[in-house]
């Protein structure tokens, strides 16, 4: 790459881009149609699969859409805000269950994202320097992330089995920590089972991103700090963590959105009926729609969920971007 820059440098002086008022970015050539043509496939697909269905979903949330109207959903009668009123009426069963599911999801997301970030960052920082076996360990740590969700989660289902699972075998038979074998996939324990699987599956992504982020920290910073007598821990606090700020801003947001919307993990772990203690919102809405065949209410719940995520994301970006121009740049991207 370095060999090609020298002749290209000479070319730049005569290139057409330099003349048309873009001296800083000579590569940007204005040509009206081409960029739009290049974007067209992506735009069409996003429209078809994301944006149009989203609009349909919003329209559906204002309709009384039960199984009788599913053949031709446009004929379902309008109900105004009734679906929404039903979803947020926390004294009635539907609203109460939704609120409960929402709170469970919040607690689950905070714990899962926090643990994934903590473990991923710690592992990446500990593996910043070379040591024997580092390459093998790095490959190994990425395995949970690389495994297909259903294959990984189904293994955990086996491990959490009451009679023939590994977890009860170790906790009860081998260590004697519990009086009798516990149920992990039903009842209150299911929350911890879900959290464990989610963290096991999710932390390598944080590891991967933080590891990539660490490679962009200039070595000179550490060398200068070492000359000034800063120890390893001080370097970590003063250089590594502050430098990771912009990376963390995006990482935490992405982890939050993925975890909050996660459907695959609870669905494979618990099947169609999630236990109350681990009733994540995506599965809850899926159930509210497909088990009761009330798609209008399900859509209203989905729209409320989207609004919540929009508000949280907006507030998060505002809070984390203020005071740091690097952060702001990331937030815009």
């Amino acid at each position: 790459m370095t060999t090609t820059t020298a002749p290209a440098e000479a070319v730049r002086k005569t290139s057409p881009g330099a003349a048309d008022g873009h001296p800083r970015r000579p590569g940007r050539i204005r040509r009206a149609g081409l960029p739009y043509l290049l974007l067209l496939p992506a735009l069409l697909l996003e429209l078809l699969v994301h944006l149009v269905p989203m609009v349909i979903g919003i329209v559906m949330s204002f309709k009384e859409l039960t199984q009788f109207y599913i053949r031709d959903w446009t004929t379902a009668p309008w109900t105004g805000l009734r679906n929404y009123a039903m979803s947020v009426d926390f004294n009635a069963p539907v609203g109460e269950a939704l609120l409960h599911s929402f709170l469970v999801t919040c607690a689950f997301t905070v714990l899962s994202v926090g643990l994934c970030w903590l473990i991923g960052t710690a592992a990446a920082v500990f593996m910043q320097d070379t040591f024997r076996g580092r390459g093998v360990l790095r490959a190994l740590f990425l395995v949970p992330y690389a495994l297909p969700v259903y294959a990984a989660v189904i293994t955990w289902v086996f491990m959490f089995q009451h009679d023939n699972g590994l977890v009860n075998h170790v906790l009860h038979d081998q260590l004697g920590l519990t009086d009798k074998p516990s149920f992990w996939l039903i009842g209150d324990n299911s929350f911890y089972a879900l959290l464990t699987v989610s963290v096991w599956k999710g932390w390598p992504f944080a590891f991967l991103i933080v590891m990539a982020g660490l490679q962009n920290i200039p070595r000179e910073l550490y060398e200068a700090a070492a000359l000034d007598g800063a120890g390893m821990w001080q370097q970590l606090r003063r250089i590594t963590l502050p430098s990771l700020r912009p990376v963390n801003q995006v990482l935490v947001l992405v982890l939050f959105l993925w975890t909050f919307n996660d459907f695959n993990t609870p669905y494979v772990l618990f099947g169609k009926a999630a236990p109350e203690a681990a009733d994540l919102i995506s599965v809850h809405i899926y159930q509210a729609s497909f088990v009761t065949w009330n798609f209008g209410t399900g859509s209203a719940m989905s729209v409320l969920l989207l609004l919540f995520l929009l508000v949280v994301t907006g507030v998060y970006l505002l809070l984390t971007s203020s005071g740091s121009t690097r952060g702001r740049r990331r937030g815009a991207a």
């Binding site: 992506a42 996003e46 078809l48 699969v49 994301h50 944006l51 149009v52 269905p53 989203m54 349909i56 979903g57 559906m60 959903w73 992405v254 959105l257 909050f260 919307n261 459907f263 919102i281 995506s282 809405i285 899926y286 729609s289 798609f295 399900g298 859509s299 989905s302 729209v303 969920l305 989207l306 995520l309 929009l310 994301t313 991207a333």
Partner: peptide
């Protein structure tokens, strides 16, 4: 860029049924 990225935050459940109908 903002629109494309923001589709990442859509809950899959929101457009599952509409997409099916579509």
């Amino acid at each position: 860029t903002v629109t494309v990225l923001s589709t990442q935050m859509f809950p899959g459940i929101l457009f599952l049924l509409p997409l099916f109908l579509l």
